[in-house]
């Protein structure tokens, strides 16, 4: 174990950095995607509801690994078909797109559920005071929904962090991928995977502890 850490420690830490970078990037995009499609599922408009549902069902119905292959290999070939030669996505780009789309669908559901958890009377009271639908959403409903959403969002963050390991299949040098290389070179699978596992665990446990603290602070004002 010491040997692996001594020789590959720096590489593994750098890989963890890339893992976190991809997670954070994906999460930011997923928030935007989730906000758009989540709201589409909330508004009283059949057309938007339909688009929102199709997106969520389509993405949730496909395993992340298939989505990643589809984007990494499929998109460049589609763009080549359009007559643009030489287009390629690198592992980070393809991985971030796949992860954002995937996480965005779950985020959309979290945001929809959060908004629907706010009592209808809150919107009605706002409307009765002359505020528009969108003002009521922005000033009254969403701020209350965010409180109930925070634990789920943090949970999704942890899931997304772990899902980055799936993207080792498209060659992005995140933690699992680099770990695999290190173990292949040293032929020490037991120690190697233990180190990799521990690294994930330390980051995730720290994050969830932090999340608990944030959650408690947010709930104190109620």
């Amino acid at each position: 174990m010491i040997f692996i850490i001594q020789v590959y420690g720096g590489m593994l830490l750098a890989a963890m950095g890339r893992t976190l970078l991809m997670t954070l990037l994906s999460l930011v995009f997923a928030m935007v995607i989730g906000m758009i499609f989540g709201l589409m599922n909330v508004v009283h408009n059949r057309f938007f509801n339909c688009i929102g549902t199709i997106y969520v069902d389509a993405v949730r119905g496909v395993p992340l690994i298939v989505l990643a292959y589809f984007i990494y290999f499929g998109m460049p070939s589609a763009i080549k078909g359009l007559g643009i030669a030489g287009f390629r996505l690198n592992g980070l780009q393809a991985g971030t797109i796949a992860l954002s789309l995937n996480c965005g669908a779950y985020m959309a559901e979290i945001i929809r559920a959060g908004i629907e958890s706010v009592d209808r009377g809150q919107m009605e009271a706002g409307r009765s005071l002359g505020l528009s639908y969108s003002s009521c959403m922005a000033l009254i409903v969403v701020p209350q929904a965010v409180r109930t959403m925070i634990p789920s969002i943090i949970n999704q963050f942890i899931i997304t962090l772990k899902d980055t390991s799936i993207l080792s299949v498209i060659g992005f040098p995140e933690l699992t991928n680099v770990g695999k290389t290190a173990i292949g070179n040293t032929l020490r699978p037991l120690e190697g995977w233990a180190v990799v596992g521990l690294m994930y665990m330390i980051v995730i446990v720290t994050l969830s502890k932090l999340a608990k603290r944030v959650e408690r602070r947010v709930n104190r004002g109620r």
Partner: peptide
């Protein structure tokens, strides 16, 4: 309708105060 509602106050059974 929003303009008209500014002149009509409404009080609800369950108060509907903004909890936040």
């Amino acid at each position: 309708i929003n303009k008209v509602r500014e002149n009509i106050g409404m009080v609800f059974q369950h108060f509907n105060l903004f909890n936040h």
